[in-house]
Design a protein around this nucleic acid. Structure first.
Length: 508
RNA sequence: GCCCCCAUCGUCUAGUGGUCCAGGACGCGGCCCUUUCAAGGCCGAAACACGGGUUCGAGUCCCGUUGGGGGCACCA
């Protein structure tokens, strides 16, 4: 086993946890767990404009649901206890989790960023500047017009006499100006960037908040992060971070820029691609097990002749390796997710399945609000298990167990290649059988019904189709005899009787 | 516009110079099983973007083209 890795997932509280972000989190978590290291969450809320109240709590809830365990981060319980949408009641987790120093929310670490930004200024790696947004966008437009990438440089400052006590920003100095910055990426290999293309990035904003660039570097170092995993949209600014580590004289973490996840249209996954929030997947009936399995496979494969596709979370942890993550972008495929979800549903115990089904059934108007109904659901579970792709598929398969049915239309009660009269006789014969047959159980019932088929000179399909429609009100159901046994003799008789009178009514 | 990244079946991928007329999985088609629907089993169609090199030999290495993606903020 390799050395322990400490990784973090660093979302900004600007909305729901996006599925692409979840994949990054999963890879980071897998790496940490595989090596016996730590995985934690740090909230990057340095942009006050985009901050969304309640987002932090939602992010944490998403991790709870996914079953991704954390070794640090904002306190779940404290957040949960809060009545409002407010995220930070006050001091929060400024303690330490498993040796990782908090706080885990950047807005509570402001003095740190200020201190290190000043350190950079004092050591000649950064300088003060005070150009207005308008001035900057003009400079940018000019560069664009010249066909160049806009790169801010110290000598472009409009005011060179910025004092520490007046409003200003602190920008990093990219050095050497005409050199190159090189580093190794676990996924891309050796990378080289021309410093001439790298901006003298703002590190400390005028409002005293750091930008991402300063904050990640300071926090990752202070919190002992060994591997930085993030989307490859960060690649172009990676040299800035590498440079910062070198200015500070801090040991560099290992870099791993993950390829993006694309929607079916080949574009980066976004709002328009159906579900994007973890909660949407949850509400659509996906299992966290399946989602994690699927997302891990999006970019990672065990390799070495191992062709396993279905993984439990422990198997994933055992086999995962960051080096085996591919470098090309992957397309999100709902077909495969659906299949995997079905596989994981089939692996659930009956009790577990029943439990997870409850909220979905209730949403469909089937209330599982008594011990008897729970018991009933538990009995049904094994018979629908292999018929589900998503938890939302269950309701139409089980509704007739929980509520009365409306009598099916007459043509549904007439068997294939049969007429009304023969169907009527078949139903009557079935009624008589059901009335007295013992034991009223799955296998014996099937045996008896098959014997009845022979007696009536009907094919199983003919008889069973009519009975299915009569007893359940629908053409597609779980296996008939298990269904009848669970429904119980009385219910079957009632529904059979109704079907019989339905067939009778027009004529007799 | 400038910079960066990527490129094997429709999709996720295996493949690290010869064992690849390219393997697995999803999806798709067919068959079997079968009381419906599923699940399961078997079979099948389906890919190395293109062009140059290097090499005895290239999916595998190099260059270019094309295509796709991303970045160019006092956003992350």
């Amino acid at each position: 086993m390799t050395a322990k890795a400490r990784t973090r997932f660093a979302p900004s509280p600007t909305g729901e946890l996006h599925i692409g972000g979840v994949r990054t989190a999963i890879f980071s978590w897998l790496l940490a767990r595989h090596t016996g290291g730590e995985f934690y969450i740090r909230i990057e809320d340095t942009d006050r404009e985009r901050y969304v109240p309640g987002a932090t709590r939602r992010i944490l809830e998403a991790f709870d649901w996914l079953g991704i365990d954390l070794d640090g981060g904002p306190d779940h319980d404290e957040l949960r206890a809060m009545p409002s949408n407010e995220d930070y009641p006050g001091a929060l987790d400024d303690g330490e989790y498993k040796g990782i120093p908090g706080p885990f929310v950047q807005s509570q670490r402001l003095p740190l960023y200020k201190q290190w930004a000043e350190w950079l200024v004092a050591h000649g790696y950064a300088y003060r500047a005070a150009e207005t947004p308008e001035e900057l966008s003009r400079m940018r437009a000019e560069a664009q017009a010249r066909g160049q990438t806009f790169v801010f440089r110290e000598e472009m400052r409009l005011r060179t006499d910025v004092r520490p006590d007046e409003p200003h920003v602190i920008r990093m100095r990219v050095l050497p100006r005409d050199g190159q910055t090189e580093f190794d990426d676990l996924i891309r290999g050796h990378l080289t960037f021309d410093n001439a293309q790298v901006d003298d990035q703002v590190l400390l904003k005028m409002d005293g908040f750091p930008t991402y660039h300063l904050a990640v570097v300071v926090d990752d170092h202070l919190q002992g992060v060994t591997h930085v995993l993030r989307g490859d949209d960060w690649l172009p600014s990676a040299p800035k971070h590498v440079l910062l580590y070198r200015y500070f004289g801090w040991p560099e973490p290992r870099w791993a820029h993950l390829p993006n996840v694309l929607g079916t249209d080949g574009k980066k996954l976004s709002k328009r691609h159906g579900a994007q929030s973890v909660f949407e997947f949850r509400d659509q009936g996906y299992l966290p097990e399946a989602l994690i399995n699927f997302l891990a496979l999006l970019g990672w494969a065990p390799g070495g002749g191992d062709e396993q596709n279905v993984f439990t979370r422990d198997e994933l942890i055992a086999k995962f390796s960051i080096e085996r993550v591919g470098s090309s972008p992957a397309t999100f495929d709902y077909n495969k997710l659906d299949w995997l979800n079905g596989v994981h549903i089939r692996r659930l115990s009956d009790a577990d399945l029943a439990e997870r089904l409850i909220p979905f059934l209730e949403r469909a108007g089937i209330c599982i609000d008594s011990p008897a109904r729970r018991e009933l659901l538990l009995k049904i579970a094994p018979h629908i298990k292999e018929r589900l792709k998503k938890l939302t598929d269950a309701a139409p398969l089980v509704d007739f167990f929980f509520a009365d049915i409306s009598t099916p239309p007459m043509d549904a009660l007439i068997g294939p290649k049969m007429d009304r009269q023969s169907s009527l006789e078949a139903l009557r014969a079935t009624y008589r059988l059901v009335e007295s047959f013992e034991p009223f159980e799955d296998a014996p019932l099937e045996q008896a019904m098959r014997a009845l088929c022979a007696e009536l000179q009907l094919k199983p399909t003919q008889l069973f189709t009519i009975v299915r429609n009569a007893v359940t009100g629908k053409p597609v159901t779980p296996p008939l005899f298990a269904t009848m046994a669970i429904l119980g003799r009385e219910t079957c008789l009632t529904r059979l009787a109704r079907a019989i009178s339905c067939l009778q009514s027009p004529g007799e």
